[in-house]
Write a protein that binds this DNA or RNA. Structure first.
Length: 302
DNA sequence: GGCCAGGTGGCCA
DNA sequence: TGGCCACATGGC
């Protein structure tokens, strides 16, 4: 089996360690993260490649690709590098965000504590949508339980050096199920319907990442998504922020965000929507990053 | 045991 | 538009 290496220069204001810490904290079986590296299987068309990423001297990211299916070509390499760049948001220039955040009463601490963190993506649209829907209106811990069940019941597992790696279930697989099979995981009937319906839309290609990426205007993208049953403003903004890289996507009704602002501001009560709108006006253009940092800050508190 | 949880859709005025 | 309310179950 052939092994290929590719080296990326680490951009400014990027800490691989801080990003690995985040990945370790949110491990879900799809990848494995350690304090020095992260590995996962990445699917390119019909083939799977085992990819490991580590850093060299904090100046370079080394991407190691194992050609587990003997199908490696120039396009494979291009796609895998694009995947990694997207996953870690390497194209993002965070310096203007940091400049703004250091003067912001809520963001000052988060950006200091997690300096170098990027909005780690959920590159797969179906995964991002399912994860958002699972997380609606239930506590985060149970949402992780449901996601685990979802992956282990319907996903594909791959072995590497004795370790199991999961691939997120495809929309095609979910669309071929009976809704009751989703219900049995412990989610509500309504959520089962939402997820099943979205799986159908994606299988029939009415909904795809490529189509959404052709939309550059946030409001239009939100409208497009919220026209789908089960996707409200929160879910649309969550997915646009985590998967499609809309910098101004802002899940403003998010309860963790509210708690994070309450925590960061040492308030006795959660802020009102109008207060958040007012304070967040200075985050314009960086709402997604502000939200991501506040989540990280709040969820990692002692 | 009661309240809250990374909301949404549907109904009503 | 804006205000309820059902959904439904786990975590604390």
């Amino acid at each position: 089996m052939a092994i290929y290496k590719h080296i990326l220069t680490i951009p400014a204001n990027f800490s691989f360690l801080i990003n690995l810490n985040y990945l370790q904290a949110t491990e879900d079986g799809l990848y494995r993260a350690s304090p020095t590296s992260v590995s996962r299987f990445i699917q390119i068309e019909e083939d799977f490649y085992f990819v490991s990423i580590y850093s060299k001297n904090d100046t370079e990211l080394v991407i190691v690709i194992e050609d587990t299916s003997n199908s490696y070509n120039q396009n494979t390499e291009k796609e895998i590098i694009a995947y990694v760049r997207d996953w870690f948001d390497l194209e993002m220039d965070v310096s203007p965000f940091y400049k703004m955040a250091k003067a912001d009463r809520f963001l000052k601490k988060p950006v200091t504590q997690f300096y170098g963190l990027r909005n780690i993506a959920i590159p797969d649209l179906f995964e991002a949508l399912v994860w958002a829907i699972l997380g609606q209106q239930i506590n985060l811990q149970y949402a992780y339980t449901l996601k685990n069940r979802f992956i282990r019941n319907f996903g594909k597992s791959m072995k590497h050096n004795g370790e199991t790696y999961w691939l997120f279930p495809s929309a095609q697989v979910i669309a071929s199920l009976d809704i009751d099979e989703l219900l049995q995981l412990g989610m509500t009937r309504r959520k089962s319907e939402y997820i099943y319906h979205i799986a159908e839309l994606m299988t029939d290609n009415y909904l795809s990442k490529e189509k959404l990426l052709m939309i550059s205007n946030l409001d239009i993208a939100v409208k497009e998504l919220t026209s789908i049953r089960g996707i409200g403003s929160w879910t649309a903004n969550y997915v646009l922020m985590r998967c499609l890289r809309f910098r101004s996507a802002f899940p403003i009704s998010d309860t963790v965000l509210h708690n994070a602002i309450k925590f960061a501001g040492s308030f006795k009560q959660k802020p009102s929507l109008n207060e958040i709108k007012c304070w967040a006006s200075s985050w314009s253009g960086y709402e997604a990053y502000a939200t991501f940092y506040l989540w990280r800050f709040y969820l990692s508190r002692i």
